[in-house]
Design a protein around this nucleic acid. Structure first.
Length: 642
RNA sequence: GCCGGUGUAGCUCAGACUGGCAGAGCGAAUCCUUCGUAAGGAUUAGGCCGAGGGUUCAAAUCCCUCCACCGGCUCCA
């Protein structure tokens, strides 16, 4: 009888009979654990507790207290949905229904349902949960399974591809319902405490645009009703943070149907924030040895024919016919910057040359992609291009990553990092790619950054490091980026004279600290929930006169605080109403000014965290705020701890 | 680009299913109130009901086309 070695999470090795199941091993560890076993994680993959172990593996037992339990529960919830669906719509065909980070979805076809139908399906699902049906695993010959699905080409496709090598496949059944599925699942439908269907949308079969469109229903499930309620409440709060809503409320920006889709109009409040953001990176860039340049919004398309972008992206460019010549709005800044580099001859001693520009670009993205400020047709990149010697790549990338980390830290943002490697279609030799990739990776390691390798996801011209943010609705968006480029120096025939008096090819580095201002603006708006730090807030202080008689004194204070963005609320409202409005407008500081203050020559300060204090010296307030703004503090601190 | 949903006053939304005078709250303007830490009162103005076409005695409402937005998919130099 042969054995295999199972390594437990704490590193303990355990010899068990080959073919033992996850559950067997759990019982071996302890009878209590055996009874509690829901599933297992074998070499990182969630599997059914009846899965046999046929090789040496790492094993983690999943119980109701494991993080993975929620995944298992939601997988079962997907089946409950499918069962409910088939009870109400017997013609419905199932495809795949996995769990996700926040719940599950099931892709279906053969039914015509819309949002209004979800209620009835959800009610039926509640019924199935109430019935507390046992969930059983059944093994079937692949051939038999194939016949069972003779009217479902999607399941047959799965059997022909994913399960092609297996002799037997697993089905899970609950009551009258059955589904081809790898599992794992919970023991019975009654384990689901809270169940909700959330959205209905569409997806392509296997994610390929040319394939059939399926109906996708999203839902979620929790062990308890309370946990579900909490989730729904958080979801509702997240919707409140949506930058499109806050942008409207705070008059930051708008996108008008008449002026065009994806073309944001920044209102005065939004532009004030943009200016602060722009000044901030301009300072960082100058300190880091960049020179500012400027290029126009329109170029002859010859430029992109030269750079190679034209043939790939001409369909997504805004083209203009000028005197029978083709021009286009610029979709990227790099060819302009490369052209500026071309205007001089360079010595190896001059490199690196670093250019930056807040460059507005125009990309005619697919219509269905446009979304607030996250994805637009017109956006501004805080775009930098470095022209470096090959031996300078690592140092310059390191410095760039440093600035990016500083920037993200200033705004106190959460992010993830992706390292994207050589795609199938690429330019440049093997050697230079390998070198470049190892240099980027060395920087990430040196900085101790957690990152995910996105194999083959790099640009055709070089590998890149992307920093990504999550928006209020949980969607991910690329922000800051560092990209190596071997292509453009080639296409523009860029060169510098080396120590050896020979012509050499520089490498270009594309980088952005924010990415696009639009997207970064979205991230900040949602991150701060519109409560921008004082240094960014479009209105930093609002003076609230108690009666009209105090307006003159307010004007005097406004003078004294003229380094800040200060307004006076002069509408003939009650003080309470003025305070409410100032809170709604998310103003960091409001000063209530009445006869008492006027006589004493002071102010009363209230902040948006509802702290308040009377009899404040104006100079003290001003000095504190100057520091707060200068240091780019993310919180209102004047009344903190007083 | 694909599938589904939505589009009514500056904003948030009712009215639509079942065709018959276009509504409410907030905001705005004017007047009263001059108020002490989260909504004082009154009056008035404000609309090509996304656009175009059709059905009908009659269309915000029913049908068609287009546009825009929302969710997801796909794409993202």
């Amino acid at each position: 009888m042969s054995t295999v070695t199972v390594t437990l999470p704490d590193g303990t090795p355990l010899e068990v009979e080959r073919g033992s199941t996850v559950e067997d091993v759990a019982y071996e560890i302890g009878p209590g654990l055996g009874d509690d076993t829901v599933a297992g994680v074998v070499d990182g993959e969630l599997v059914d507790k009846h899965a046999p172990l046929t090789a040496d593996v790492e094993l983690e037992i999943v119980t109701e207290s494991s993080d993975e339990y929620l995944d298992v529960l939601r997988h079962s919830a997907a089946h409950v949905f499918a069962q409910a669906l088939q009870r109400l719509y017997p013609d419905a065909k199932l495809t795949i229904g996995p769990w996700t980070d926040n719940g599950f979805y099931y892709d279906i076809t053969g039914v015509d349902i819309d949002e209004d139908d979800l209620e009835a399906i959800e009610a039926e699902a509640e019924e199935i949960i109430e019935e507390d049906l046992d969930i059983e695993r059944e093994l079937l010959d692949r051939e038999d399974a194939f016949e069972r699905y003779e009217d479902n080409p999607f399941k047959q496709d799965i059997l022909e591809t994913e399960a092609a090598d297996d002799e037997v496949v697993s089905f899970y059944t609950q009551g009258e319902f059955e589904d081809l599925c790898q599992g794992p699942h919970v023991e019975s439908t009654g384990e689901i405490g809270g169940f909700a269907l959330l959205e209905i949308s569409a997806a392509f079969w296997r994610g390929e645009e040319e394939n059939e469109t399926l109906t996708r229903v999203y839902g979620t499930a929790f062990p308890t009703e309370d946990a579900l309620d909490e989730f729904l409440e958080q979801r509702r709060k997240a919707e409140e943070r949506d930058h499109r809503k806050i942008g409207q409320e705070m008059d930051l920006f708008s996108i008008d149907e008449t002026t065009g889709p994806g073309l944001p109009l920044y209102e005065p409040n939004g532009k004030k924030i943009l200016n602060e953001l722009s000044d901030y990176v301009a300072g960082l860039n100058r300190d880091a040895g960049y020179d500012e340049v400027e290029t126009p919004h329109v170029f002859r398309t010859e430029l992109w024919k030269k750079s190679g972008h034209y043939e790939n992206y001409v369909d997504d460019m805004f083209l203009l016919d000028v005197n029978d010549e083709e021009y286009g709005l610029k979709p990227m800044n790099c060819p302009g910057h490369a052209t500026i580099f071309e205007q001089n001859s360079w010595s190896y001693r001059d490199l690196p040359v670093r250019y930056f520009e807040d460059g507005k670009v125009y990309r005619k993205e697919q219509r269905g992609e446009l979304s607030g400020l996250s994805r637009t047709w017109a956006f501004t990149i805080d775009d930098g291009h470095l022209f470096v010697r090959p031996d300078q790549i690592e140092e310059e990338v390191l410095a760039t990553v440093d600035i990016i980390l500083d920037t993200l830290d200033t705004f106190n943002l959460d992010y993830t990092v992706q390292f994207a490697t050589r795609p199938e279609k690429s330019v440049g030799g093997d050697e230079i790619w390998e070198k470049a990739e190892s240099q980027l990776e060395a920087v990430l390691d040196e900085q101790d950054i957690d990152y995910v390798v996105e194999e083959g996801d790099g640009a055709f011209y070089g590998p890149k490091i992307d920093f990504a943010f999550e928006d209020a609705l949980g969607r991910h968006w690329d922000g800051p980026t560092v990209q190596l480029d071997f292509n453009m120096p080639e296409r523009f025939d860029l060169s510098y004279t080396g120590e050896d008096n020979e012509e050499h090819r520089p490498v270009m580095i594309h980088r952005a600290l924010y990415g696009s201002y639009e997207r970064f603006f979205m991230v900040l708006t949602e991150h701060y929930n519109g409560k921008f730090p004082p240094w960014l807030a479009p209105e930093q202080i609002r003076l609230l006169p108690v009666s009209d008689d105090n307006i003159a004194y307010c004007e005097q204070i406004q003078e004294e605080l003229d380094d800040f963005r200060v307004t006076i609320e002069d509408r003939s409202w009650t003080v309470g109403k003025k305070i409410q409005q100032a809170h709604d407008d998310r103003v960091p500081y409001m000063c209530v000014i009445g006869d008492n203050e006027e006589e004493a020559g002071t102010i009363s300060v209230r902040d948006r965290k509802e702290r308040e204090e009377k009899d404040i010296d104006i100079a003290e307030f001003r000095d504190h705020l100057e520091t707060e703004v200068e240091q780019q503090r993310t919180a209102v601190t004047f009344l903190a701890g007083r």
